Amino acid sequence: MSESVPPPDAPSTPGQEPAGVGHGLQGADPQAPQPAASPPTPGDVPRALPGPRPASPPTPGDAAMARAWSTGARAARQAGGRLEVPLAEADVLARAQAARAKMQRLLSSPTPFSGDDGAADPAVARALDALDAGNQPRHLLLERLWSALAASRVIVPVETHALPARTRPAGPTPGGKAPTHPVHTADASRDAATLAVELPDGHIALPVFTSVGAMLAWRADVRPVPVEPRRAAVVAYEHTDQLWVLDPGTRDLRLPRPAVVALAGGEDWVPSWRSTLIQDELTAQLSGLEGVTAVAFAPGQASELRILLRVDASAGRGAVADTLAACQEVLVNPAWGELIDTVELVPLPA
């Protein structure tokens, strides 16, 4: 299917048949007498000279459009004035116009981090300074830090060629060479998951930085990409052990798993040390064990939550050891993984 533009009509002169009448029209009687054309009057509009109609020039800067018009003009000359553009070339032209329109939309849309200078967010910096000073309880400072992080932006590192498992399709490129390097995904946070770090306890965490300087102190061969904290939390949830390590190499601060999970879900983080729902469920499960007479909770220092257990020691050390083992069995249930990061059991004599 193609679009045709016929050539201009031939001029009508005295004693000559008009174009498309008589012998050139299928079904006409060639023996029938032809009426003589009347001579033109002074008021008639002059007719165009015979020959191909020139094609309009291409739009400047559109290579695909120029190729289509060039091919169409050449076809017009060969066909005696019929300008035909095959569908394949019309499709190329439409794709080029759509791609140009998309690029214009992308360039005109504002980016959320266009003015980012790479420095740490002031609220995050203040929360980290307070955490370093240690003048307040650590668990309260962690909550303050989480709130500052959730309202700011973070920086994730991306290698030059991330995701080694994802490569371009095999086959030569327009330049004649097959690409051998891996490609990025459309999500810089997912690319950062390839740089996940192993913590001392064996867990895998996503490296997240508060500033470009902190990232370069860790590795100088990566490039910084600012992202929204929730997006980085979603990637940590999907591709690591649901953990962040903040400023690895200089600070190595592990953000508790429930804090990352809450951030990924767009929810407020309610730490286990002040969550009545978590504490009530733990109390119900632990109090039912033989030898446990009371359960209490407190914020941990090295851990997230400290559980204080009153254990009946009248049956001897063996019975106390069995009671503590039963308590640990309750706590290793994977269902607690997204609610409590780390737990410290503190047995107290009844």
Rank of each mutant, 00 (worst) to 15 (best):
V5A: 09
P8Q: 08
P8W: 11
A10N: 05
P14Y: 14
P35K: 02
A36C: 01
T41V: 09
P52F: 07
S56M: 06
P58Q: 07
D62C: 04
A63Q: 09
W69C: 02
S70Y: 01
S70T: 12
G80N: 01
A88R: 09
A98Q: 13
A99L: 14
M103Q: 15
P110K: 10
D117R: 13
D121E: 09
P122H: 13
D129Y: 13
A130N: 12
Q136G: 05
L149P: 04
V154R: 09
A162M: 05
R168P: 11
R168D: 06
P174R: 09
T180C: 00
A186M: 13
A188I: 00
L195Y: 04
I204C: 08
A205E: 02
L206W: 04
G213D: 15
G213S: 13
A214W: 00
P224R: 09
Y237R: 11
H239G: 00
T240W: 00
P248S: 07
R254C: 04
A262N: 01
A264P: 06
G265H: 12
G266N: 10
W269E: 01
E281D: 11
L286M: 10
E304F: 11
L305I: 08
A315Q: 15
G318A: 12
A321I: 08
A335V: 08
W336K: 05
G337I: 03
E338F: 02
L339V: 01
